[in-house]
Write a protein that binds this DNA or RNA. Sequence first.
DNA 1: CATACACAGATTGTATTCAATACTGACGTC
DNA 2: GACGTCAGTATTGAATACAATCTGTGTATG
Lengths: 237, 237
Amino acid sequence: MQHSLDSADNAPRQRVQDEIRRDIIFGVLPAGSRITETALAHKYGISRVPVREALRALEVEGFVESKPFAGSTVSAIPVDDADDLFAIREALEAATARRAARHAAAQFAAGGPDPVWWEHRKELAALLEAGDQAIADGRIDLLPELNIRFHLGIAELSRSSSLTALLRQISGKIEWLYASDVDSRGKSSWSEHRTIMAAIDAGNAQEAERGMAAHVHSSRLGYLSRFSPDGATGTAS
Amino acid sequence: MQHSLDSADNAPRQRVQDEIRRDIIFGVLPAGSRITETALAHKYGISRVPVREALRALEVEGFVESKPFAGSTVSAIPVDDADDLFAIREALEAATARRAARHAAAQFAAGGPDPVWWEHRKELAALLEAGDQAIADGRIDLLPELNIRFHLGIAELSRSSSLTALLRQISGKIEWLYASDVDSRGKSSWSEHRTIMAAIDAGNAQEAERGMAAHVHSSRLGYLSRFSPDGATGTAS
DNA sequence: CATACACAGATTGTATTCAATACTGACGTC
DNA sequence: GACGTCAGTATTGAATACAATCTGTGTATG
């Protein structure tokens, strides 16, 4: 995986971008705090140029706000948008799951599966295993990371770069929301992932979409019940 | 307006970023074509550094794809994602309209309206006028630009930066889809904008949400009927 | 004839340097 | 005492210079 999830020894710019995003999500850089390019450059041991590039990207991603010549600040945590973000994520992930299933069906129909596609598929299998193992070991602290990687993995399988990009952003925001919770979404509902994966493998688009929508929806309800006790405001559907 | 919609005499970087995006959307830079930083720098009369920053932003926006040391290429037009993009836009804009109405109600409840908010509200009124005028003058070629500005204006009124950022991206993609059509969405359904605006002004969140959802939905059907005659695949709702 | 390999050219990634602008504090004036 | 003005400083924006890496081409070799 050469994606921005793993903090491998990528190019410095990519690494720094991931680092800063991570620092924002986990509160190392608190919301509203001012960010100076020099400080970041010094902190990560690089020049200001890659830092600037990272900031421009994070600005589009919504984690940072900049005004010309006035510098950058960490955006506010989008707590007020939580319900809406979940709603959009629901529509988005339903779409990726459906597309992934369609694509899988097309793969098997056309003789052998595309090797790249197969590679992604195997990574997902490994992720499912890792999640089960984490639960067995009582390491539920590992689940959030695995969870986000699974969902992005499904998006990859959908072979839609635009939807994947959108999901990556929304996931980042939602991760940001969860990070303010200490014990995070504990057991989550990891087992549902296998049901979704099975539907995709079977090429059952309808079931994949339905399963994913239900999965995300329950996640949404879980969040809202924990943070805004008055319950979901709900969007007319 | 200091937003990225108007191609004013902003900072070079912002200007170039908008220019490149525009060139991609309108096919000056065809999909799949390779982009070299030096060429862009030369073309716009600036250095490579701001070009790189613009490319990083456009990469997150999904218009450009880059591999380390290998350069950047224009992404593929997301025609296959059209239906899904519209579906997500539907959820997204319904949310922004609802929030805008709620916010408007809160404004008037709490004595005087916030001056910044009021400024945005006045700009929207001007946009509505401009649209009517354009129709009266038979200049329907102006409508696409006005249309996108209206919708982003509503998002601004919602006071949710994360939702606005998402909408800005999706709008860009959808604009890209429409650009491949010659006579674009002619009369569109501009008059519906006034209905939505009225619901927001009245603080009627439910009506604002419903109106916006219907508006976007009809736009979606219009697109699909023109480009994929087999009709919308439809997402289970 | 196909393939592996090395080299040259082009292109990207980063550092350094200088110019333009915004923020901060002191000072003078009303 | 409050307010407007103005320099000083810090920070961002951009340009240039250099290092690292990829890509295509030509050649040798099986």
